[in-house]
Amino acid sequence: MSDREEFTPRSKKKSQISEILKRLLMNHAAVVGMLIMLILIFAAIFADYVAPYSYEQQNLNEMFARPSLKHLFGTDNFGRDIFSRVIYGARISLFIGLTSVVLGCISGGALGAIAAYYGGRADNIIMRVLDVMNSIPNLLLAISLSASMGAGVGNAMIAIGITSIPIYARVVRAAVMTVKEQEYIEAARVLGVSNRRIILRHILPNSLAPIIVQASLGIAGAIITTASLSFIGLGVVPPTPEWGGMLSAGRQYIRNHWHMVTFPGLAIMITVMSFNLFGDGLRDALDPRLKR
């Protein structure tokens, strides 16, 4: 099986990857971003062990405690430990961010690939549909979608995933367009390899770079959109510790209890920042011409 697919020698591919990695690791900002990302992912996965308290454990005798050694980020209006909630919140935010991007990536990517590969009528129809979606502002579309599906983690994820379809479709389409013209695709076609196989085995892997970049930036955007939805009251509902929801709940206490909005806000900012740094670094590493 495998020998038939190797139009580009494996060793060359390998060295390419290590070259990219090397460039990425040279970029300090990207490394910082990556480290923060890894810490966040670790915290999200092992929240049960990392968080000192449960995210829903209330203590009505200890409401609005200031940050201290006992409660690093203080407690909220139910006496819950904000530090623990922020950590569990990473789980929710990263989950929604990742899954919605995967959803958008797969469906958008498939549409873009089909459009670009087959061209003509398919391209026309798909792109027109995407134009329609594109002319409705993202957040408005996400809000309408989650209003029609109802609040909740799963629905927020789907709503945000759907709104990101056009971006991925465009990115993939552009990438596939350039790859399509390459000689080895022509060669595969001449050899009689099926369309599906060409798309999946050759075109997609070779147009992965811009998709990965867009995805890592997309996760950042998705996390902000999730938080915005919850802030308006259409996203994730309490007591799920979603950062935007925590901010929204803390909003009314902002004057007297600054810590209730400060830490969830910082968490969003740092997470988004780390994905942005990583995404930018990745883009530079994948395409040295763009190195700025």
Binding site: A220, I224, A227, S228, F231, G244, L247, R251, I254, V261, G265, I268, M269, I270, V272, M273, N276, L277
Partner: peptide, 16 residues
């Protein structure tokens, strides 16, 4: 970087 990473509503609250 901070500008893109700060959610608007949080920034708004802090500004208020």
């Amino acid at each position: 970087l901070v500008g893109v990473s700060m959610p608007n509503f949080w920034q708004g609250l802090l500004m208020i």
